[in-house]
Amino acid sequence: MSGIALSRLAQERKAWRKDHPFGFVAVPTKNPDGTMNLMNWECAIPGKKGTPWEGGLFKLRMLFKDDYPSSPPKCKFEPPLFHPNVYPSGTVCLSILEEDKDWRPAITIKQILLGIQELLNEPNIQDPAQAEAYTIYCQNRVEYEKRVRAQAKKFAPS
């Protein structure tokens, strides 16, 4: 494992614990031996107030490669969400998460999670990743928002 990646992720964890947006979660997972795995984080993004996503808490896994922060983490909703920019596998399609697009090593975990929260309610229809959600979003916004509200209710924190 890269010392650069681990040191950056340790800084990220410290900064997150000191200050993070209300309702968001970002925690490194534990290895079988109980030690912390900084390369694999369990996160959760709350649906934004005043949107059909409100009330939901959407679980996301963030996986970092050894060359982080040169390369972005892979962000994957578990379980996958109904959304035009979420692949059926759950992987998020967002330009700041793509090395050859808008990724920059200075982007923080907090910025990534806030960017994904923004994307939930403002899909990028130029870059669809899920045919069904994309089609319904474009053709029947009322039905799309109904499905999103049902999903938010399903993923409401207990």
Rank of each mutant, 00 (worst) to 15 (best):
S2W: 01
G3A: 00
I4M: 13
A5F: 09
L6M: 15
L6H: 08
L6R: 05
L9T: 03
A10T: 11
Q11M: 13
R13V: 01
W16H: 04
W16N: 01
R17I: 01
R17V: 00
D19M: 08
H20V: 00
P21G: 04
P21M: 06
F22Q: 03
G23Q: 00
G23I: 03
V27M: 14
V27E: 04
V27F: 03
T29F: 15
N31D: 08
N31K: 11
N31V: 06
P32H: 12
D33C: 05
G34C: 08
T35A: 09
N40R: 09
P46K: 07
G47T: 06
G47A: 03
K49I: 10
K49G: 14
G50Q: 10
T51K: 05
P52G: 14
W53E: 04
W53Q: 02
W53C: 00
E54K: 14
G55F: 15
G55C: 12
G55H: 13
G56L: 02
L57D: 05
F58Y: 13
L60I: 12
L60R: 05
R61C: 11
L63W: 00
F64Q: 06
F64L: 09
F64M: 15
D66S: 10
D66P: 12
D67T: 10
D67W: 02
D67K: 07
Y68D: 02
P69N: 00
P69C: 03
P72Q: 09
P72A: 13
P73A: 12
P73D: 00
C75N: 08
K76V: 13
F77S: 03
E78L: 10
E78K: 15
P80W: 14
L81K: 03
L81N: 05
L81S: 03
F82E: 05
F82Q: 02
H83Q: 03
H83F: 06
H83N: 00
P84N: 13
P84C: 09
N85Y: 01
N85T: 00
N85E: 06
N85R: 04
V86T: 00
Y87P: 00
S89M: 15
S89K: 11
S89Q: 15
T91N: 11
V92H: 01
V92K: 01
V92Y: 04
C93I: 00
S95M: 01
S95Q: 03
L97D: 08
E98P: 11
E98D: 15
E99F: 09
E99V: 11
E99N: 08
D100Q: 11
K101I: 08
K101M: 08
D102Q: 00
D102W: 10
W103Q: 00
R104W: 05
P105I: 07
A106K: 00
A106F: 01
I107A: 13
I107N: 14
I109L: 11
I109Y: 03
K110D: 07
K110E: 06
K110I: 07
Q111I: 14
I112G: 06
L113Q: 06
L113N: 05
L114W: 13
G115F: 00
G115H: 00
I116A: 15
E118C: 10
E118S: 11
E118I: 10
L119V: 07
L119P: 03
N121W: 09
N121S: 12
N121R: 12
E122G: 08
P123C: 04
P123Q: 00
Q126D: 10
Q126P: 08
D127E: 11
Q130A: 12
Q130W: 13
A131Q: 15
E132P: 07
E132D: 13
E132C: 09
A133K: 04
Y134L: 05
Y134N: 07
Y134Q: 05
Y134F: 09
T135Q: 12
T135F: 11
I136N: 07
Q139I: 08
N140I: 04
V142W: 10
E143I: 12
E143T: 07
Y144R: 02
E145G: 08
E145T: 13
R147K: 13
R149W: 10
R149Q: 11
A152M: 05
A152F: 07
K153L: 10
K153M: 13
F155S: 11
S158P: 12
